[in-house]
Design a protein around this nucleic acid. Structure first.
Length: 138
DNA sequence: GCCAACGTTGGC
DNA sequence: GCCAACGTTGGC
């Protein structure tokens, strides 16, 4: 069973273009327990929307979980984990936070309910709608 | 630049 | 164990 997620990155720190250039990239630096639990729940092959926070505030691409949770090498202690993400494909049209907020069907989305959560789940229904808005078929 | 949300810390 | 103070994230 494939699950769907949304991960946030500030493009200043790490952007979609860098993800594409690097191919597979360790998704490190998560220091929030809710986000950590989500990382641990990810299975190889799960899809994630790649969201640019702060600058852009839009979903720009899709990545795939290439390696399941393992200890985050950038954390000295605390049991933090990371996963490996592989660039999958860009959205044809970026889906902005503003557009998501306009559609009342997204009111329940973790992205809207917990604006500070950097790794959150996406339901299959929301996934399909967002792919359509982005002009891609997965 | 400001502010809301929310997590963490430390005093009691 | 409670709660005020403070720091961080992220949208506006």
């Amino acid at each position: 069973m494939t699950n769907y997620w949304l991960i946030k990155s500030e493009p200043d720190a790490f952007s979609w273009d860098q993800q594409v250039a690097n191919g597979i990239e360790p998704w490190t630096g998560v220091r929030n327990h809710t986000a950590k639990l989500n990382l641990k729940a990810m299975k190889k092959g799960d899809f994630c929307f790649f969201y640019h926070s702060n600058i852009g505030k839009e979903i720009v691409g899709i990545v795939k979980v290439a390696k399941e949770a393992y200890p985050d090498p950038t954390a000295e202690a605390g049991g933090w984990v990371c996963v490996d993400m592989k660039a999958f494909k860009p959205l044809k049209h970026a889906v902005t936070l503003a557009a998501i907020k306009l559609d009342t069907r997204f009111t329940d989305m973790a992205l809207l309910r917990q604006s500070r959560l950097s790794v959150g789940p996406v339901s299959a229904e929301h996934w399909a709608m967002l792919c359509e808005m982005g002009g891609v078929h997965v």
